[in-house]
Design a protein around this nucleic acid. Structure first.
Lengths: 331, 331
DNA sequence: CTGTTAGCGCCTTCAC
DNA sequence: GTGAAGGCGCTAACAG
C-alpha cells in the first residue's frame, strides 16, 4: 500500500504538504498542490482511514442500528433518510442490522464503542416502545420510529394521532360521512393513536360519533399468534353498519376489503370509499387510484434523527406527513 | 478514552500483556489474564479499532454494496445472509447502500479503498447485468443477484430456469395439465430463464406444448414506462385458452388473478390453480394456502457470496432453492 | 506557505 | 510468559 511519504517523495515535497492536500487545506501553493495531486494519481494513493482516525479526535462516524424485528418494505427509508443527511454533511454512516436477540444488540454496541462512533440512531421497524442497554447512554443517541420505555432517550416518532386525523379528514372532504375503521391490534401504539385521530376528525367536523365504527380486526389468539379477521369483519360491518367508507390499518387489509366489496358487487370509490395507513406497495396499480393512503414518514424520520445528532437541531420544519418529536436532553 | 496503557498500569502488567489478553493470545498466565480482565472492566476499556487496524495487516473488513435501484422487500435478505456469515467468521461487514448514480458508486468505492476492505459483494435488487468500474478489480469482488456484463467478476445468481422447472413441476404434480404463464417483461433475465424452465418441465413430463401458453403481461409503453396488463390478459386468457392453472411472474400479479377469478366466480385451487414467483409477502394470509410460491434464494445468495469471499469456497452444498454459481477466477 | 517534531493507540519483533 | 523498543500511516502543534 502506498503511503503519504511515498507520495511526498514523488512530488518532491514534505509529507505534511501531502497531508494538507489530501485534507483540502487551502494553505498550499497551487503549484505544489498540482505536483501532489499528480503524484497521488500516478501512485494511485489512497489515504488510510484507520491511520487518520487514530490521530484525529473526531471520527465523523455515525451509526444507525436497524432493528429488523418486523421487516416491512418501506422501513428501509429510515436508513435512506439518515444516509442522505450523513452524506450531505460528510459523515460516515455505519449501518448495523440487528435482530431481537441480546447477543445481536450487544455486538452492535461493541462495534459502536470500538469504532468510536459519535452518534447513534436506533430505529425500529414498527412504532413501539423499546428498552435499550444503558451502555448506549455513553453515546449521543436518538430513537427513530420507537420511543424509550423509561423516557431516557430523545426520539422521533410518527404522530399517529395526526395521521388518523388527516386520513379521516381526507375522506370527509371527499364527501364520505359514515366511516368504519378497521384498526390494527389496539395494543400497539399506532392503533391507539390513529383511533384517537379518527375520532378527533369526526368531532372537529361536527359529525356524530354514531356515524363512526372502530373495530380492531387483528386479534391475538390464545397461542399468542396474531390473526387478521379483516375480511370476515368487513363483510359483516358492511352489511350491518353500512359505512360509505372504510379505513384500513394497513395495505394488505385494504386488499381484503377490495375482495369483500367485489363479492358484494360494490363499486370501489363509488359505493364505498377505501383509505389505508401504511402503504406497503402491495396494492396493485390498477386499484391505487381508488385508495386514499397515508404513508408513514420514514424518510423524514431518518433525516430528522441524523440532523438532530449532527447539528443538535430540534427546531426542524414540520413536514407534510405527521410527526411527533419528543426531545429529552439526555446529553 | 481509556487506553491500553492505563489498563496496564491498573493491572500492574506491561501494556503488551494487556494487548495479548485483548487479542486472546493464549500465552498469558491466567493470574495475569484475570488481573487484566478486571482492570478492563473497572476502567471500562474498549479497544480502539482504528488504532489496531493501522498496525495489523489484515483489516477483516468486508463490504456489501447494495444497489437499491429496485427496492423490493425481500432483497434485504441478501444483506442478511452476508451478515450472518460475516458474523460467524468474525468479520466486520460494511453495508454500503448506493443508488444508480455514478457519484454514489464512486463514493462507495472510495470508502472501500480507504477502509482497506478485503472483499466486496456487489448486490443488485433485481437479477440483471451490471457494468462495474475497473477499480473494483483491485479488491476481491463477487456479484450477487447480478452478473458482470463482460464476465469479469465471479457472481452468484438465482437459477431462473430451474425455478421455472420447479414451480411448473409442482403444479403438474398437483394434477394441473393446462397452464398459462403470465411472464414479466421478457427482456429481463428472470423472465427469459423462467420461460425456458416452464417449457422444460412440460417437455420432461411429456405434456404437449399446446397445453402451455406463455405471455408477457408487463409491456413497455412508448414513453418507456412499464405497465402491467396482467388483469386484462388473464381475463382474456381464462376465457379463450381455458387453463386449469396460472403461473404469475410475481405476487402483485397473482393478486390480480385472484380478482379476475373472483369476477368469473371461479374457486381458487379448485377451478383454477395459482402459482407465483417472487413472494413479496403481498398476498393476504387468507389466500396463501391456495398459492404455490417460489421465493428467490436471496438469503442463500448473501451467505454464499460471503463464504466465497472469506474462504474462497466454491464447493458449497446445493440448497433447496435453485441457484446458479458462475465462477470466474478474477483474483 | 512549508517542514519538523512529536505523538495517536496499538501491534510486531525480539530479547530476556 | 513477558516486556522494551520500534514502527504503522497519519495529524497536531509549532517553528520557520
Amino acid at each position: 500500500m502506498v503511503t503519504i511519504k511515498q507520495v511526498a517523495a514523488r512530488a518532491g515535497v514534505s509529507f505534511k504538504t501531502v497531508s494538507r492536500v489530501v485534507n483540502n487545506d487551502p494553505s498550499v501553493k497551487s503549484v505544489n498542490r498540482e505536483k501532489v495531486l499528480n503524484a497521488i494519481k500516478e501512485l494511485n494513493y489512497r489515504p488510510n482511514r484507520a491511520a487518520s482516525l487514530t490521530r484525529r479526535k473526531k471520527t465523523n462516524i455515525y451509526a444507525i442500528i436497524a432493528d429488523e424485528l418486523l421487516n416491512v418494505p418501506y422501513t428501509f427509508d429510515i436508513i435512506r433518510g439518515a444516509q442522505e443527511v450523513a452524506w450531505k454533511k460528510n459523515k460516515e454512516l455505519l449501518i448495523l442490522n440487528i435482530n431481537e436477540t441480546k447477543a445481536s444488540i450487544d455486538r452492535a454496541i461493541v462495534s459502536l464503542l470500538e469504532n468510536r462512533v459519535e452518534g447513534v440512531i436506533y430505529s425500529a421497524m414498527c412504532h413501539r416502545a423499546v428498552q435499550l442497554p444503558d451502555e448506549l447512554k455513553k453515546i449521543p443517541t436518538i430513537l427513530a420510529n420507537c420511543f424509550p420505555i423509561n423516557g431516557d432517550f430523545p426520539c422521533v416518532v410518527p404522530d399517529e394521532v395526526q395521521a388518523g386525523e388527516e386520513i379521516t379528514t381526507a375522506l370527509i372532504n371527499k364527501g364520505y360521512r359514515r366511516i368504519a375503521f378497521l384498526n390494527l391490534n389496539e395494543d400497539i401504539i399506532a392503533a391507539k393513536g390513529r383511533k384517537q385521530g379518527v375520532i378527533n376528525a369526526f368531532t372537529r367536523h361536527g359529525l356524530p360519533l354514531s356515524n363512526l365504527l372502530i373495530e380492531s380486526v387483528i386479534i391475538k389468539q390464545d397461542d399468542g399468534i396474531e390473526r387478521s379477521i379483516s375480511r370476515e369483519s368487513a363483510a359483516k360491518i358492511i352489511d350491518s353498519f353500512k359505512p360509505d367508507a372504510i379505513i384500513c390499518g394497513q395495505d394488505p387489509m385494504a386488499m381484503e376489503i377490495y375482495f369483500v366489496a367485489h363479492e358484494k358487487n360494490m363499486v370501489i370509490g363509488d359505493d364505498i370509499g377505501i383509505a389505508s395507513f401504511d402503504n406497503w406497495g402491495s396494492i396493485p396499480e390498477l386499484l391505487q387510484p381508488n385508495l386514499t393512503t397515508m404513508a408513514l414518514p420514514h424518510l423524514q424520520m431518518g433525516r430528522w434523527a441524523m440532523e438532530y445528532l449532527i447539528d443538535l437541531r430540534v427546531d426542524l420544519v414540520h413536514q407534510h406527513l405527521p410527526f411527533k418529536l419528543i426531545k429529552r436532553d439526555s446529553f
